[in-house]
Design a binder for these strands. Structure first.
Length: 208
DNA sequence: TTCGTGATAGAG
DNA sequence: TCTATCACGAAG
């Protein structure tokens, strides 16, 4: 990729397993109108054998997955307050990638205004925070995130050291290491849980 | 630590 | 209808 060139993350990217997509989404840039941020935290949810995934309990989510393509936005309201941004994944395994935190890189004034605070650290350091900063709502539900250059992910150059960790804020299947963060990033929603004696593998749970 | 908030689903 | 359950965030 030439310097300065921007390459959209295509639907093909999301036609792989959710774990792979979640890990490789770290380091991409989400562009949303005039706002941009580097994805530093994500989580994978599988449509089968994952009790924490909405498909486990919600027929409406199973219907959503059936009628939408890979790369479609799955957005819902949590706790009556916060919008959550997920990307539909359809590989051998199907599911979603939850975008949990970003390092903001453009549109600071707008984001600070929407969030009602100043300073970059807390603008997008959580799934509810980033949707507020980017003004992502239910209007964007089912949006194709792989075609509009103003509402998509972009690849970036460089290597990203990714840590696999347990998912946050769930009660079911909470032990699975399906949360991915950019190692050492101060923009994540919560610090990586360090298990005593554990050796974090830099490339996550799979080598692919 | 506690509490607001509303969509969704399942029970009665 | 009613109730439980949340992939959260801010205040205290």
């Amino acid at each position: 990729m030439a310097a300065g060139e921007r390459r959209i993350v295509t639907a093909q990217f999301f036609e792989r397993d959710p774990l792979i997509c979640a890990r490789e989404l770290i380091g991409t840039v989400l562009v949303w109108g005039s706002c941009e941020g580097i994805v530093v935290e994500s989580e994978a949810y599988l449509s089968v054998n994952d009790e924490a995934c909405h498909t486990f309990m919600r027929p409406s989510t199973r219907a959503f997955l059936a009628r939408n393509q890979a790369g479609a936005a799955y957005i819902y309201l949590n706790y009556g307050v916060h919008w959550m941004l997920n990307v539909t994944v359809k590989g051998t395994d199907e599911g979603f990638v939850l975008v949990r935190a970003m390092e903001p890189i453009a549109g600071f004034d707008l984001m600070e205004k929407r969030r009602g605070l100043t300073g970059p650290r807390q603008l997008c350091s959580g799934p509810g925070k980033l949707t507020q900063a980017f003004a992502i709502t239910i209007r964007d539900h089912e949006r194709d995130l792989c075609c509009d250059p103003k509402h998509c992910f972009y690849h970036t150059t460089g290597m990203f050291d990714v840590v696999a960790d347990e998912r946050i804020g769930i009660t079911k299947a909470a032990d699975l290491p399906w949360r991915f963060t950019l190692r050492g990033s101060p923009f994540v929603s919560r610090p990586v849980k360090q298990k005593e004696g554990a050796i974090a593998h830099p490339s996550g749970v799979r080598s692919g």
